[in-house]
Design a binder for these strands. Structure first.
Lengths: 194, 194
DNA sequence: TCGCCTTCTTGACGACTGTCAAGAGTTCTC
DNA sequence: GAGAACTCTTGACAGTCGTCAAGAAGGCGA
């Protein structure tokens, strides 16, 4: 009943993520999203009030999966160097495997500066990502037996900045982007320790 | 003649920047841009081949002005601390004075991940901004009589990350965003020195 | 004053958009 | 197995978009 209803919403969210990730938020129509699912375009308005509600649901749905991305790295590393290597490798991996999803995230986050309806969801996810990064950084400091030099927001901002730069270069076809990201992260992480 | 032609293009670019900055790339139509100028909507296609060409011209035009933003700071500061304070203050000032323009830049940069036609202009401007930031960072290191710990790309990525975060929070109405940006920059800059 | 050339306006076009209503198809209940 | 409730499709709507053609308006040389 309501669980089935929720399953359909998630199913449509998945189609939406596939399509939005390829074409971007602005260029993607509801008909296009429906075409990437097994339903017709009218069904969207049966499960969602409007387009924004679908996008917000899709982005929240995406967050629920991505947010534990580095938890294995944190759990399995026993030295600071090992953690750093695994973290950098995981960053590269996610760019290679999920580039469209990351593009969509940065797109939606930029849109939220103009569309207030997106802000609440974007702010929530941004906070969740900040916590995700902080679990890595604080564990790194712990393994290095050093205090951190930055607060969680700054640490997230810094790493998000270089990550976004690498993603942009990667989708533009720059093959040196990912090796450079690895170097930058290796250079940066020691600096966040006091 | 051709100079007049170029003047009109710049004039339209200015109207475009005003409109795009308020409403975002996706939501802004050519009719809307023309309404913010003294011309009718048809004139755009007299001076520009299509919408993308107008946007690219507008963004390049914007770059030409913004790129010297911190050069006064670099020239006028005689100690590292003074440079740092002035740089942080200037960052805050530009968020307060030119928030829509910065929003537009991040919007267009995100769009360039989906629209190849935007990539060349975006890449060029990104490089120019990187050089702009590097003039600040390298002068800061010089005044502190210390070598830098980061390459230009990493330094730009790091500062761009926290700046973007502050901008996002600022337009969302978070009044603590700009003081926090000042703190973050003051905490971050010493770290880029080896 | 005439005609030419540049500049700009007007109005239209086809395509696409989000939305929704009407109803067909399906599933469930009794 | 009939009827109700839920699910989905179809087709249409009003609006917006980028684009472009036709021609008006204005300046300019002769």
């Amino acid at each position: 009943m309501s669980v089935k209803h929720e399953e359909r919403r998630d199913q449509l969210a998945e189609s939406a993520l596939r399509t939005l990730g390829e074409r971007g938020y602005a260029r993607t129509s509801l008909r296009e999203i429906a075409q990437h699912s097994e339903f017709s375009h009218g069904v969207v308005h049966y499960y969602f009030h409007d387009k924004t509600e679908l996008v917000v649901h899709a982005v929240r749905y995406y967050k629920a999966r991505c947010v534990t991305r580095y938890d294995g790295v944190v759990a399995d590393s026993s030295t600071a160097q090992e953690l750093l290597d695994a973290f950098a490798a995981k960053l590269v991996e996610t760019v290679l495997d999920e580039a469209p999803m990351h593009c969509l995230w940065y797109d939606v986050r930029a849109q939220s500066m103009f569309e207030p309806a997106l802000r609440e969801a974007v702010t929530l996810i941004d906070r969740t990502l900040e916590e995700m990064i902080w679990r890595v950084v604080s564990r790194y400091a712990e393994l290095a037996a050093r205090p951190t030099a930055l607060d969680p927001a700054a640490a997230y901002g810094v790493l998000d900045g270089v990550f976004q730069q690498a993603l942009l270069a990667h989708v533009a076809g720059d093959e040196t982007a990912l090796p450079r990201l690895v170097d930058q992260v290796h250079g940066l992480m020691p600096l966040v320790l006091a």
